[in-house]
Nucleic acid binder design. Structure first.
Length: 385
DNA sequence: TCTGGGGTCCTAGGACCC
DNA sequence: TCTGGGGTCCTAGGACCC
């Protein structure tokens, strides 16, 4: 059987933890947990395979990780460093094809058609290991999701191949929860109908998929049959930008919460402008002590990008919420409906926005030069109690 | 024992328009 | 007595992914 396409998924093994082990020889062979500090409300970002032996996993609350592995080495993350390693990893990928799609800091798809999959993957793995000192696992297949699953089955430091002739047999006993788009809720719902394997799933009639899961169902059926025509498409523009923070203790003081919204608005605004974008919609996210979460958003007729305007929206939305004294666990600010800033004609800008544009521009240059704590909106500054 | 932060996509109802 | 129909925008929430 021929390969319609040759797709490789490259996935770095325990990325952040491996980099820390590479840079700190005393960490090697030991359980390293990268993420929040124990005693905080954070979670594990990544942990070394040594830590996984104790049951520690990504996204696990750090308090739970600490209970499972109290003698582990807990380190805060150094994103700037990881970004640099990531960039070099993708540089290696680009030597083999321009069709590289980065899906996260440590993972990307390559369409290397018509090169030989296994040999190419082997070369990429070797080059990354030799030049960066970290290992990656590769999955090779004729479509994206099977390349992904092939890699998952081969971690760590492995190379998995699923050819067109292997797909049917491979999918027969595969758990439905391994299919992309089938998360805990969907898997539960399928299990309640007695469907746990892809082999069983694909005996269901097309109308059932559509009726049961809508658009997602149609995709699910395709995947169950080994069909995935999603192309590997390099660099797409961001559709939203957001920042959020979880407090170590719930907060109910309005002045403090508004100051946090101002700070988040500035951080979002700064990212928006440095990306050369404007937005038409700004919103907030509020999570209360009981973990219930609200989102509110607001669209304006004219695109905007200043910190002050983003904050103005955030503040209005926040103050319009019911139950203003409920203790808050998390606050977030985000923007969407993004467009390049040069497409907006200056004449269309509201008169009152122009001064804010200048203020934002000056603030951005100061922040780039001296760091983000250098300057901020008055509303973001609050005296320590 | 609790549950981060940054995203994407889908759904669904109401407004509004032709 | 019966209340169109389709398209798009806006908003809120939820599932999912890394």
């Amino acid at each position: 059987m021929s390969w319609p396409r040759v797709i490789i998924l490259i996935d770095a093994d325990a990325f952040f933890a491996s980099i820390e082990q590479r840079d700190n020889p005393e960490y090697r062979g030991k359980p390293v947990i990268v993420g929040a500090r124990p005693g905080t409300r954070g979670v594990v970002a990544t942990c070394s395979y040594e830590a996984r032996k104790f049951g520690v996993r990504s996204a696990m609350p750090i308090s739970q990780a600490y209970r499972l592995c109290p003698h582990g080495i807990y380190v805060g993350h150094n994103m700037a460093k990881y970004q640099k390693v990531s960039a070099r990893m993708f540089d290696v990928c680009h030597k083999f094809t321009p069709l590289v799609e980065k899906v996260s800091i440590d993972e990307g798809y390559l369409d290397i058609t018509p090169l030989p999959g296994k040999e190419t993957a082997r070369s990429i793995r070797r080059e990354i290991r030799e030049s960066l000192g970290i290992t990656v696992t590769a999955g090779v297949s004729y479509c994206r999701y099977l390349a992904k699953i092939a890699a998952e089955e081969s971690k760590p430091d492995g190379l998995g191949v699923i050819g067109p002739e292997d797909a049917d047999a491979f999918l027969q006993d595969l758990s439905v929860s391994k299919l992309p788009g089938v998360g805990p809720k969907t898997a539960d719902s399928l299990t309640r109908e007695g469907i746990t394997t892809v082999g069983h799933l694909r005996t269901m009639p097309p109308a059932w998929f559509q009726a049961r899961f809508g658009k997602t169902g149609v995709r699910m059926q395709q995947l169950s049959m080994g069909i995935d025509n999603t192309p590997v498409s390099p660099a797409q523009r961001a559709k939203s930008i957001s920042e959020e923070v979880t407090f170590n203790e719930d907060q109910d003081e309005q002045e403090f919460l508004l100051a946090v919204l101002a700070r988040l608005s500035q951080d979002v605004g700064h990212r928006l402008r440095t990306a050369g974008l404007r937005c038409r919609t700004a919103g907030i996210k509020v999570r209360y002590s009981d973990f219930s979460t609200l989102t509110r958003e607001k669209s304006l007729p004219v695109p905007f990008a200043s910190d002050a305007e983003i904050f103005q929206c955030a503040k209005e939305l926040f103050q319009a919420l019911p139950g203003s004294s409920r203790p808050v666990r998390l606050l977030g600010v985000g923007v969407k409906s993004l467009e390049p800033s040069q497409t907006v004609q200056p004449m269309l800008l509201a008169e009152e926005e122009k001064p804010w544009q200048d203020v934002s521009r000056v603030m951005d240059s100061l922040r780039i030069k001296y760091g983000k704590k250098m300057i901020s909106l008055g509303a973001a500054i609050r005296k320590k109690r």
